[in-house]
């Protein structure tokens, strides 16, 4: 990626893909992605359905490993380390690169245990009550649930559940939080809350968010990556069109297809 030097100086790459292609069996779902993700920034992935946004996102914390037949080619590095080299433990990768899913998926446990789960797994040495409170506050859920920490996580509303999932993801103090359409099941108020949250969270974490809502991308993202798909054998093959600082991508994109997409004249 080529950036103007002003941007390049103040940013610091945490994840980098080099000519990364991802396959499901023989089907090449995403082809040749070159992308830098900058520390403490929010990067948004936009693009039409099926162009591989989720696929690329999942390859950052090796969630794709769990899908039989899924294979990654090229390099994906995290702090310069090849994430797919043989001596990397995917469990440790996921510890440091957390994920929030499209559908809120709290465990059928209490609010408290939902947050404490990851910390217990990782033998957190500190005070658990403090950690739970801190994580819930960061996810701006504390005021909603401080009186019902023992209630089931499933008894919360959809928006609260999603914030609970965010709190659970950040309770293990990851460096990067991947969010796959985290607001698609939420009402506008909860969506706004989560967007505000992202602005706060990026002081501490690096955030990558997949979204179909372009306003959302302009509101939360520092950088936006536009993906597209083209016909190929076995189905549509996704590729990265371009990645730019968000206002540049929306107002002055380099590629015509980006322009068509962001102005709604697509397809």
């Amino acid at each position: 990626m080529v950036y103007d030097s002003a941007t390049a100086v103040e940013t610091d790459t945490i994840i980098r893909t080099e000519n990364t292609s991802i396959y499901y069996g023989d089907f090449k779902a995403v082809s040749g992605v070159n992308l830098d993700i900058y520390r403490n920034k929010v990067t948004a992935f936009i693009g039409p359905s099926g162009c591989g946004k989720s696929t690329v996102l999942r390859c950052f914390n090796r969630t794709n490993d769990l899908i039989p037949g899924c294979r990654v080619e090229g390099r994906v590095t995290f702090h310069g380390e090849d994430l797919y080299s043989k001596d990397i433990d995917p469990v440790q990768v996921r510890r440091r690169i957390g994920m929030v899913f499209q559908k809120p998926n709290p465990f059928p446990k209490s609010v408290y245990d939902n947050i404490a789960y990851g910390a217990r797994i990782n033998r957190y040495p500190g005070n658990m009550d403090e950690l739970v409170e801190r994580s819930l506050r960061r996810a701006s859920l504390w005021d909603d649930v401080k009186d019902k920490l023992q209630a089931s996580g499933l008894s919360l509303s959809g928006g609260q559940q999603q914030r609970l999932c965010i709190a659970r993801a950040i309770a293990v103090e990851p460096e990067v939080v991947l969010m796959d359409e985290p607001c698609s099941a939420l009402d506008p108020i909860s969506t706004l809350k989560i967007e505000e949250l992202m602005n706060d969270l990026k002081q501490l974490y690096t955030i990558i968010i997949v979204t179909h809502n372009m306003q959302q991308a302009t509101r939360v993202a520092d950088y936006t990556a536009f993906y597209n798909a083209q016909e190929a054998k076995g189905g549509k093959m996704g590729y990265l069109v371009e990645v730019l600082p968000t206002d540049e991508l929306f107002n002055n994109p380099k590629e015509q297809s980006t322009k068509d997409y962001v102005t709604g004249r697509f397809g």
Binding site: L66, Y117, A169, V172
Partner: peptide, 19 residues
């Protein structure tokens, strides 16, 4: 989704199943 959530906070497959 529950399995995914557990794995995403750094649990092993065994921990995910057991807990």
């Amino acid at each position: 989704g529950m399995r995914d959530a557990s794995l995403a906070v750094g649990a092993t497959q065994f921990q995910t199943i057991a807990k």
